[in-house]
Design a protein around this nucleic acid. Sequence first.
DNA 1: CCAAAGCAAGAGCACCGCTCTCGAAACGGA
DNA 2: TCCGTTTCGAGAGCGGTGCTCTTGCTTTGG
Lengths: 232, 232
Amino acid sequence: MSTVRGARERARIEVTAAIKDEARRRLAAEGAAKLSLRAVARELGMVSSALYRYFPSRDELLTALIIDAYDSLGAAAEEADSRALAAGAAPRDRWIAACEAVRAWALAHPHEYALVYGSPVPGYSAPADTIGPASRVGNVLIGVVRAAYEGRGLALPPLPPVLGPEAARMAADFAEDLPPAAVAALVAAWAQLAGLVSFELFGQFQGVVEERAAFFTHAAGQLAHGVGLPAV
Amino acid sequence: MSTVRGARERARIEVTAAIKDEARRRLAAEGAAKLSLRAVARELGMVSSALYRYFPSRDELLTALIIDAYDSLGAAAEEADSRALAAGAAPRDRWIAACEAVRAWALAHPHEYALVYGSPVPGYSAPADTIGPASRVGNVLIGVVRAAYEGRGLALPPLPPVLGPEAARMAADFAEDLPPAAVAALVAAWAQLAGLVSFELFGQFQGVVEERAAFFTHAAGQLAHGVGLPAV
DNA sequence: CCAAAGCAAGAGCACCGCTCTCGAAACGGA
DNA sequence: TCCGTTTCGAGAGCGGTGCTCTTGCTTTGG
């Protein structure tokens, strides 16, 4: 698969990784707005123009970091769910574990979280390369709901008629074995989860919520209820 | 009150407003990241250094825009709720109307919404001047829940014991006449509402949700249920 | 072995936030 | 009315940015 042909390709891969590492370091330290190519190059002992051999623009570098962040966040959620599953947790507890993993990752990597779920930094438009890694968290949540559905079933209110076709389409696209109402609820819960994490991370809870971990766990439990997971 | 003493103060007020207007225009056109003092000054026919007589830094200009955005958003929510109230709407419908007003404002002013609910742009720290205007949306939601509470009461699940003191504190701070469980649910719903709007605005629903207005209305209804509003 | 391709380096362009100085204008008390 | 004080716009300038182009050097592969 990834047969490295010569010293040149090897060097290219190494330098590309070094650039991303240094960029990630500066991103964590100062945020995306202050991430400068020149500073990254300086820290790596190269001149700024040399960096353009590896990334055609600052935005492309940021996009690479975004993809890595999606992957890292997705892996964290997957791992937390796997751990909960191995411990024999009920769907509701797996759900909460996944949500808490997302929150923990966000608190540990605030600027990377802002990069993926905050306001889009460049002109606009998340490139198509990001949609794959971006869905990993969603897939974890889908898996939890699927397990509950195949077990005791889901407790969901009926969908309003106007949303019927839309929910059916979403179900066909993302989880054809689940009821459309469950898929629609899942998408909403996913966005709401991000809202809870973003508010805490971006300081909106300052002076409002103090016991943030407990509050979040409670809210995640409410989200679990919202997607029909049994309370057991 | 605001007696303008001389031509100097009058000019200062006018120029300050003109700067903010032009900055808002450029913000709407290109986003906060690309808002430059020099471009604003250029468009206003002044030299960039002159602008520092009115705003000590770019961040201070952005802060002023943030405060205005909070106020504009809050006014939109208040107006929508008042209209619903005047039309004799039930609390649940007032709630949905307020949520839809927030979404509509966000869609109409995406960059300003990103400024207040997206990732914090400058170094950090929302200044203290923003907390007043920031609470207007929250107050609307509180008012709707209060009306329901004083009417038929609220249908809320019990709070986990660990959150008892925290919820009581939040209730004392923001709505002492409401049950702590309602206030806790309100805060969570507020964050979740922002999550729904942010996902739509920041492109996270691209390729996922198509019928966004209907989907949002449904999700807002679920949020209403989450804060205990009767379904009537 | 040698042409082609990849590479780092440097100079340079246009822009940025911000500071400082300077002269003109408005202000307000004597 | 005069005059010191304050406010203001303009200009030059500093250090920084993203990005481009040219210039040679090195690796590559036929």
